[in-house]
């Protein structure tokens, strides 16, 4: 029976229950996004490959110069000032879009290589590429027989 410890943990729930769980989870996230959005924070997705991270943050209606990305050690801070459009004449009938200062901070397990960090802004989405510092990236140690 020792071999069974090496197997990945398998859920005993049927697929339908798992899907229900996933749907509940995503609706909770949607709900929280709504709350966060009302406070000015917009949704973020993070993708990972080995020691590379891709962060996509929705930031509609700002210009690239207004986005500040600060990387220090294992921390990333994104600061944006979204200015309300100038009101010349007319009357506001509906105002739902958030304006003002937005800040989001992230902390990673290992320090980030600042020289390889790339940030781009297109179609209202900020894309941030982070590479973990090479010498601190997790390494697999080969085991040699003796």
């Amino acid at each position: 029976m020792l071999g069974s410890f090496a197997l990945p943990k398998q859920s005993r729930l049927p697929d339908v229950c798992q899907r229900l769980q996933e749907e509940l989870q995503s609706s909770l996230i949607e709900f929280r996004n709504g709350l966060m959005a009302s406070q000015g924070a917009l949704s973020m997705n993070v993708y990972k490959k080995d020691n590379e991270f891709l962060i996509r943050l929705e930031l509609p209606g700002v210009s690239a110069e207004d986005i500040e990305v600060d990387v220090a050690g294992d921390q990333v801070r994104i600061t944006v000032e979204r200015m309300a459009p100038e009101q010349k004449d007319g009357e506001n009938l509906k105002q739902e879009r958030p304006f003002g200062r937005l800040q989001r901070e992230m902390q990673f397990a290992t320090p980030i290589d600042t020289s390889k960090t790339v940030a781009s802004y297109e179609r209202g989405v900020l894309e941030l590429k982070l590479v973990m510092a090479e010498d601190l990236a997790p390494k697999r140690i080969p085991v040699k027989p003796r």
Binding site: E30, G90, E91, L93, R97
Partner: peptide, 26 residues
């Protein structure tokens, strides 16, 4: 899952101006 974009609407003498936040759209 449909997203209802947050929208501002302004009325002037000549027109209505509608602005909707739709990140990722071109």
């Amino acid at each position: 899952i449909m997203t209802r974009p947050r929208t501002d609407i302004r009325e002037t003498d000549q027109a209505y101006l509608l602005q909707a936040d739709m990140p990722g759209i071109d």
